[in-house]
Design a protein around this nucleic acid. Sequence first.
RNA 1: GUGGAUGUAGCUCAGUGGUAGAGCAUCAGAUUGUGGCUCUGGGGGCCGUGGGUUCGAUACCCAUCAUCCACCCCA
Length: 417
Amino acid sequence: MQIKAPRGTQDVLPKDSYKWHLLEKRIRELCDLYQFREIRTPAFEHTDLFIRGVGETTDIVEKEMYTFLDKGNRSITLKPEGTASAVRSLIEHKLYADPMPLKMYYLSTPVFRYEKPQAGRLREHHQFGVECFGSIVPNLDAEIISIAMTLFQQLGLKNLSLNINSIGCPTCRPVYRQKLKEYFETHKEDLCETCLSRLERNPIRILDCKNESCREVVKNAPRTIDYLCEDCSDHFHSLQEYLTILGYDFVVNPGLVRGLDYYTKTVFEIISTDLGAQSTVCGGGRYDKLVEECGGPDLAGIGFGMGIERLLMILEKQGLLPEEPYKNKVYIASMDEASKKEGFRLLALLRKNGISAEGDLMSRSFKAQMKYADKINFTHTVIIGEEEVKTKKFTLKNMELGTQESLTEEELINTLK
RNA sequence: GUGGAUGUAGCUCAGUGGUAGAGCAUCAGAUUGUGGCUCUGGGGGCCGUGGGUUCGAUACCCAUCAUCCACCCCA
């Protein structure tokens, strides 16, 4: 049996990796613009971190984690998301002693979830994420959102929509939760099976259900934003003002409830119509209690995660990915034994001078070498035969124009540089 | 975890109850040191895997795995 990549994983092949590099370069420049620095955390953590961080009742923790015992009998889990690790690291290295706010991002870190693969959903995918700790001001929420929005604008993405909501804080959420539960109790007969089980454990999640009869019930359900405490309500309104200052269109979506338990106040998602059923490219929010819950000090936080594969899917679909960037590539074609050796020497010399070059590695005939040079799209070919070896003047052919000239070693290096 | 579609050469796909083809790609040639066009030829497939029906299955039936899509959930 042939061994294939595990279900829900993808290879990035040599011909495509430049797309990732392109995107990663843009993202690094952007983060630099916002004064964020990169953090790198391990691909796996102690399972407890995610149980405490992400939340016991979430789908991620309940059924999607790659958890195993290592040889030291520790329960280990492959990261299902990025925030918990950042928080753990912050606490472990006492970064809370640094000047506030703490700003960090992570890029192309792999995250793992055991789900059934479909369009835009993988078991291993990669995320770009941003986290900021120590500040509770609403203009920070807007600023975090603007990082994602700016990236999308720079890339030229269309058909995106920004959804925001506030899910309250430990002061107002229990009140709302109770109201919601009372409301759903009276409509039990119209709820689907999963929602009935949610009723006890996490009634807020019913708001997110796509089942038709549940949606009917949800339509008239109490909305989080109507039960926010004064602090949360002010925060939410203020956020909207700041988003307006930045000129963003947004939708207040009371049904937006995120599947991770750590969120408080602001939650948001950026949605694309070009992704099929998995429409979220970027999702995040505020998590003011998470650091404390993980054993750290009382420190507010906010951040988002963005799926690199999904982002690339949209770029591809909207035709926004450029061709592989132009590069001056030189091929050295040679004929007899003597010229082959001369070519081999020249190849090393070109590379020493920073010129990207390649020679024959297939023992091809001269003509076949030329064909190859054409196929691989070399911009120049250096031709070496008896003549060139004798005179020490090499033939440089411009493959696009078809022109050629005879040059000394030094001239050759200078023109190709 | 549930449901639908699909699985034949590197890729896109034909095809028949008697163990397979096309186009593209690849490689080699078309008189001696020059690519792109054209022409000729070669290599490459246990027809996803395991069972069953049959004298015989790539084709029919079952199972399984994988891919794609939807539910669920999320990036």
